[in-house]
Every structure is written in C-alpha cells, then in structure tokens.
Design a protein around this nucleic acid. Structure first.
Length: 249
DNA sequence: AGACAGGGGTAGG
DNA sequence: CCTACCCCTGTC
C-alpha cells in the first residue's frame, strides 16, 4: 500500500482501492463494501477473539497497547510470492522485489491520479531472467517453480483442507517451510490458528514464557497452538508487534 | 571509501 | 544442529 495525503492506496492484483479512517467511519473508494469487509476481516468476532487469546498479563498489555490491530485477508497468490521474497530479507527489500516484479510482469493500472503496476497472475511469472532482475537472488528459482505449481484452483482447494493438511500442501512447494506456510495460511486464507514463528516471535516467546531459555521453533509452535487456541494467529500478531517495538535491535 | 554483518527462512549437509 | 544462499542496507 502507499499513503498519498491522508488516503491509503491498496493494490490487489489488477485493481486499486483507497481507504481512510475518519473518527466514526471507514471511508473507501474503488471496491464494494463486501470486498472491504472481507479484506480487512471485519466480519470476525473481534471482541470474542481478544477475550479468547487474553491468557495472561503479558499478552493483555500487548492487546491494550495495540487494540484495533487486525489481520487482513490478502490475495493468496500475492501473499505466497511476497513471502517467498521474505526469507533472509527485510521489509524495504521485499517491497523493492514486489515493485520490480510488478513492473516487469504487470500492466499499468490507476485509480484517480494514482498509478501502479498490477501484480502478475499465477502462470505469468514465467521468465527466470526477469525474476532475477527484480533482485530476488536465490529466491528467484522458488518464484519460478511456484509460478508453475500454483493456480487459482490450487489456492482455492487449500481452503477446504484442515489447517495441518493445508500447511503440509504448501510446504511441498520449494522455498516454503513452516514459517512461510503459516504466514500464507494466516494472512490470506483465514486460518486463524496459524502461529508463524520468526526470529521476533522466538525472542519474545522465550522471554515471556520460557524464562529466556532457548526453545526450538517446533516447540514454540506447539506452545502457541495449545496455549492460545483457535485464534492463536491473533495472539501472534499482538506479540509480534509488541516484540518489534519494544525489543528493537 | 571499502569491508563487513545481518536481515520477518529454507534446503541440504 | 549448522551453514550457504542473493542482495540491500546500516555500521565501523
């Protein structure tokens, strides 16, 4: 997304919409209300979720501080490619990769005066050299393969599976391990029980719940699922943003 | 200025 | 469990 004046312009595949929060309303243009509700997951029972994950004073303070934090339902294909770009990278670099991929493979689109390149569809990221030119490095081969393996139907079919089955199916794609699979499931496919463990989650969980002892990612993952339950992904997001803003490296 | 480390991981040893 | 992997960026 890009902020222009007080509007946020958000690109989803080949369309752009814009939103801004006024005190009492969410204002938007370019999409239907139904799409907006879906995209920002405004149909979720927010207060019930917060009650369910509020297990102790640590997460309680994270929830208090970041109240209003939501988990969007991003386009799954965009999400998958974005997270393939994310390994051993950082936000500015991932943003650069995605912009360059869109510029190379997408087409120019606009809303009002705002111009952007669309995100290529599954099957359209079919030129390895171009993917490499987007500065994706060792991730280029994963993007190329994912492009040939993944279709809209494949992504759709994941929704019908259990969390465990869907995760295993995603893990069969080269470049997708536990963390990236969980991110795709949580941020685009509505699997709220997914609990991605990255370096920040590892740090904060060890600190808050394991007396600073080193714990394997596998064990941390099991802890998250058991301790926070069906909406563990929301707990993950509150703890994650809390960790990033309080343990800043 | 140029070298160096490390970043929202994964695969392969 | 350890390390290389591409590339960008911040630091010394």
């Amino acid at each position: 997304m890009s902020k222009v004046e007080d509007w946020y312009y958000i690109t989803v595949r080949d369309r752009i919409f814009k939103v801004r929060q006024s005190p009492a309303y969410l204002e938007f243009d370019g999409v239907s209300k139904e799409f907006l509700m879906y995209y920002f997951a405004l149909d979720e029972p927010y207060s019930t979720i917060l009650t369910q994950i509020n297990k102790d004073p640590h997460i309680n303070s994270a929830i208090k501080r970041y109240y209003g934090l939501r988990i969007i339902r991003q386009d799954p294909w965009e999400c998958l490619i974005s997270f393939l770009c994310s390994s051993a990278a950082n936000i500015p670099k991932i943003t650069l990769n995605l912009e360059m991929l869109s510029r190379a493979f997408g087409k120019k689109i606009e809303l009002n005066e705002f111009e952007q390149y669309s995100f290529p569809n599954p099957g359209e990221l079919n030129n390895y050299e171009q993917i490499l030119l987007a500065k994706t490095g060792f991730r280029a081969k994963y993007i190329k393969i994912a492009n040939s393996l993944v279709s809209e139907d494949f992504l759709k079919s994941l929704r019908k599976l259990s969390y465990g089955e869907a995760k295993q199916t995603l893990r069969n794609i080269p470049g997708i391990g536990d963390k990236i699979a969980d991110c795709i499931l949580l941020f685009s496919l509505g699997f709220t029980e997914a609990f991605p463990i990255d370096t920040w989650m590892k740090k904060i969980l060890q600190k808050l719940y394991f007396k600073n002892k080193v714990i394997s990612n596998k064990e941390l993952s099991a802890f998250g699922a058991k301790y926070f339950g069906k909406y563990a992904g929301y707990a993950q997001q509150f703890l994650y943003i809390f960790a990033r803003n309080s343990m800043a490296a």
